[in-house]
Write a protein that binds this DNA or RNA. Sequence first.
DNA 1: TTAGGGTTAG
Length: 632
Amino acid sequence: MNQMSKKTIISKIIGKKHHLFSYPFFHLPSRLLVFQIHYDVATCNLFLQSYANHKNLTKGKQLHSLMVTSGFIHLPSSITSLINMYSKCNQMEEAVLVFHDPYRERNVFAYNAIIAGFVANGLAADGFQFYKRMRSVGVMPDKFTFPCVVRACCEFMEIRKIHGCLFKMGLELNVFVGSALVNTYLKVDGMEDAEKVFEELPERDVVLWNAMINGYIKIGHLNKAVAVFKKMGEEGISLSRFTTTSILSVFTSMGDINNGRAIHGIVTKMGYSSCVAVSNALIDMYGKCKHNKDALLIFEMINEKDLFSWNSIISAHEQCGDHDGTLRLFGKMLASRVLPDVITITVVLPACSHLAALMHGREIHGYMIVNGLGKNENSDDVLLNNAVMDMYAKCGCMKNAGIIFDLMRNKDVASWNIMIMGYAMHGYGTEALDMFHRMCEAQIKPNVVTFVGVLSACSHAGFVHQGRSFLTRMELEFGVIPTIEHYTCIIDMLGRAGQLGEAYDLAQRIPLQDNLILWMALLGACRLHGNAELGNVVGEKIRQLEPKNCGSGSYILMSSLYGVVGRYEEALEVRRTMKEQNVKKTPGCSWIELKNGLYVFSMGDRTHHELNALINCLCGFQYFHDEVMHSF
DNA sequence: TTAGGGTTAG
C-alpha cells in the first residue's frame, strides 16, 4: 500500500471530491478493501456529509445502519454527521431520534447541528427551544451556535436579548454572527440596528455587504442599495453572484436598462452567466424594461431552466401584452415537465382572459384544484381566485365565475368588481346591480372600478334613470369622484337610449373632455340612431383630437353613419380620405373554442369546409392551426 | 463533526 491518505484514496476511487455520492455506497467497503483500507468513522462521516449535501436519504440511511452494526454510532462526530445528514434531507424527526439516543453524548456540536437543522427546515421556534435546553443543561454555545440561533429569533426583543448575550461572550464581532444579526434585524424591521452592526464589524465580507443591499431593497430604499453597491466597488470587494442578482432586481425596479446592461457585462466577465439564478434575474430585468428579445436570448441559453426561469420569461411576455406568447411559453413549460406554481398561474390566467381562451383557462383551473394551488388552511389566495373568476367572467362563463365567487372564503373589493363588471359586460344589467346591492349589504366599500361596472351595466341594459341616479350617488353617498370613465359610460348610456342631445351637452360640460373614447362612444350612438348632423360635429371633434394617420375607428364610424342615412357619396368620400391618408383598418375577428381547437372568424373569409354547418351568418372562418393551443 | 446570502406576480 502506498503512502496516500485514506481521504485521497477514497477520492481517487470515486473521482472528483464533489461527486462522492455518485459512487454506489454498497460498493464502498469492498472497493476500500481492495486498497486494504478498513472504513472507519472519518470515512463514514465523509460520506454522510456528501449524502447530506446531495439530499440522498436512501444512502444516508444505509450508512446509518452500517454504522450501527460497526459500533461507530456512539461517537460524538458520528452523531453530529448523522443529525446533519437527516436535517439536510428534511427528516427532522429522524435527526431528533439520533439526538435523543440515551447512550450518546450531546456536546456543542450535536446542539449546533440540531439547531441549524431546525432553522434550515423553517422550524425556527423548535431551534430556539433546543438553544434554551442547551443553556439549561450547561453546554456552552460557541461562534457556530449563534448564526443559527440569531436566525431563529423572530421578534425584536428576542434578538436584542441574544445580541446582549453575544456581547458578553465577545462573539458579536464574528462576521458570520454579524451577517445573521443584520439579516434578523432586517426581518424584524430593525434597519437602524442592522446598520449599527454593519458599521461596527471589523471584518466585512461579501455576504455581509449583500445583506445590507438586500436590507435596503426590502424597505424600498433603492438608492441606498445602489450606494452600498458602489461602496463595495470602492472598497475593492469582489462581487458574488448573489450581489449581481440583488442589484439587478434594484435596476429592474428602477426600470434602469443602462445600469442593468452594465451588470449584465459584469456578470459575463465574472463567469456568472452559467448560474441559473443570475440568468433569471437578467431575464426579469430585460422583460420589465420591455426588451423581450434580450430576455429570450438569455432564457434560451440556460441549460437547466428552473421554475424561476419559466415564470420570468412568461411574465415578460404577458407584461408586454403578448398574450399569445404567454400561452405558447406556458405550453412549452408544461412540455418541459416543469410544474407551474401560483405565480405561473397568476401570470397565465390574465392571458386566457384577454384572449377569451376559456378551454385553456378551464384546464388551468383544473390544475389548480387538483394541486391545491391558492388554497391555504385558513385563508385562500384572494388574488389568485380573483384571476380565475376574472378569466371565467371575461370568457362569458358567468355561471362558473359565480360558483367561485360563492365558494371564496375571503373576498376583497376586486372580487365584487369582477362579478359586477362581468355581468355588465355580457348584458346582465339586473344581475350586476343585484351584485352591487349585495356588496353594499356586505359592508364592502365600492371604489372607482365598482362604479365603472355599475354604470356600464346601466348603459348596456338601458337603465337610464338608474344610471343618472348612480352618477349623483357615487360621490354624495360613497365618496367616489366620477372620472372620465364614468362620464363615458353615462354618455354611452344616453347615446344608446337615443338621448343624443343630452349626451352631447354632457360631453361638452364635463372636465377632461379631450378624451377620444368619450367622443367615439357618442359617434357610435350617432351611427346607431342615424344622426348625421351631430355625427359631423362629433366627427370633427374627434379628428382634432386624434393624431393624423393614427387609428381608423372614427373614419369607419363616419363612413358607416353616412351609409346608414343613405348619404353614400359622403361615405365613399370618407373612404377615399382614408386611402389618401393611408389610414388602414385592422380587420376585426372573433373566435370560438371547440373540442378540437380554436376557430377564428374574420369578415369575408369562407375557407372552412364546414362553414355553413357551423355558422349561419355572413362571416366565414378558418381553422386556426396554432401550435400553442395544441401543445397543452 | 457544526455557521451567514440571491432571482419570478398581483
